[in-house]
Computed example of a mutant assay.
Amino acid sequence: MSGTRAEVAVTGLGVCSPGGVGVPALWEALATGEAHRPPVTAFDATGATLKAAGRVPGHSGGDGVWRALDLAETAVREALDGIDRQRVALVLGTTDPGVVPPRPGYFTGDLAGACAERTGLGGEALTIANASASGAAAIAVARDLVALGEAPAVVVGGADAVTDLAFLGLNSLRTLGPEGCRPFSTQRRGIGVSEGAAVLRLEPFHGTGPGGTAPLAVLAGCGLTNATGHLAAPGADGIELAIRLALADARLSPEDVDFVNTHGPGTRRGDTAEIAALRAVFGPRLSEIPVNSVKGVLWHLQGGAGAVEAMACVLSLVHEAVTPTWGAEPVDPICADLDLVLENAPRPLPGLRTALSVSCGLGGMNTALVFRRP
């Protein structure tokens, strides 16, 4: 699927992650590689391959199914700063559509509806469940709502908590790695699971805003594919198609891309399929493009992963810098020719203009998003 070829502006951000609460804390965590990943205490993880999980430091609120709603509320409130909320829509991705238990006035799984009520949003509320690509797929849906005039503004992203069902379920699938996420490393053995929420505020793009202010970035293109061939084994073809659709939607060519933020989960099949897809799209030029993954710092935010990675692209455009791929060394030989940004600090990239974000989910749910400087 591709969208309407209409660009929309990113005018606000909100996030809480293992890197901390708020956008500055996220950038600092991505820059330094420091995040909060304590031992699991909310349930018994004794027999699990990994016994830690990413947690939002200092964030009050409950555990379990209601925590995702608390995290989403925190992120949405930050992104709403200074905007009239009456007609603002909300689209939230999550890996667990049953995250909000039924109670009077709500259907099971109505994460977005419950969050909209808490934050005073009066527009449409949609919950998207597309596995690990949920947050990114939600952004594509929200882009079309804005571009088609269905909403004057949309707050969109993803949120998930670390629950026993998700954590132990992934452990039973042998998806957890004993060290968490080590994207593109020879030592990668699986993922680490995290909680968190990340949202972008999208509005129509009219160039500069009041007083000559420019938006943070422009969401120029989206591509979604459902390339299910195997429940757990990703396929390069579906990832490649999503990227090509996003670039076509943005009316850009592979030569226009300055930076790629990968899904980069740190699983052998996932990393291998994604790199194969990028090689198919970019060819030999891929070795000249900075490529990173934020999962070595934040681990896997589940339904929030695609959203926080889209935010990382926006922040890279704002700062004109790319943060390192922490945990990647020693690098897998299949990536030996790639520029994985292995420094210990953000790399300045003056003139950085276009960033691609790639998200992949179980069952072949793939999403690619293209952002550019205003």
Rank of each mutant, 00 (worst) to 15 (best):
C16K: 00
W27F: 09
L252T: 10
E195F: 02
D339L: 04
L145N: 01
P57Q: 08
F43E: 01
A53M: 14
L26W: 01
T163L: 08
A345I: 14
L338M: 03
G33S: 08
E150H: 13
L173C: 12
L173V: 14
L298F: 15
P57E: 07
D84I: 09
V56N: 02
S134C: 13
H59K: 15
A79Q: 06
L126F: 14
L231H: 10
D164P: 08
R353P: 12
A321I: 08
C360L: 04
T95V: 13
G105K: 12
L126N: 00
R174C: 15
R55T: 02
T272W: 01
Y106N: 08
A114G: 01
V322G: 04
G47V: 08
T262V: 11
L356A: 03
T323D: 07
D96P: 09
E203L: 00
T74K: 03
L50C: 11
F282D: 06
D70S: 08
D271M: 06
K51H: 10
G209P: 10
G58S: 04
V318W: 11
T267H: 05
S194H: 11
R103V: 13
I243T: 13
V257S: 13
P350S: 07
P346A: 13
E73V: 05
G283I: 11
V370L: 10
L301P: 03
E179T: 14
H230P: 09
R67A: 10
S194R: 06
A53T: 09
L362C: 14
C16P: 07
R244G: 11
F371C: 05
G22W: 06
E78H: 10
M311L: 12
V331E: 07
A227S: 13
L200W: 07
C115H: 01
G296A: 09
A161K: 02
Q187I: 08
D110P: 01
L126E: 01
A137Q: 08
G235Q: 12
R189Q: 15
D81F: 13
A138D: 09
T175N: 14
G120C: 14
L298K: 10
R285Q: 13
G135Q: 01
V260D: 05
P350V: 05
A232Y: 09
L121P: 03
L317S: 04
V146I: 07
N292S: 10
F167K: 15
A136F: 01
A147Q: 02
G270L: 03
F184M: 02
L338G: 09
T208G: 09
G14C: 08
V291D: 07
W326D: 10
E34W: 02
D160C: 14
P57W: 03
G82S: 11
D110Q: 09
G229P: 04
G109V: 06
R87E: 12
A53R: 02
V76D: 04
E320I: 12
A68F: 14
L148H: 04
I243S: 01
V322I: 04
G351H: 11
G327H: 15
L170K: 04
P24D: 07
A29E: 01
I275H: 03
G192P: 01
A52L: 12
S60E: 15
F107N: 06
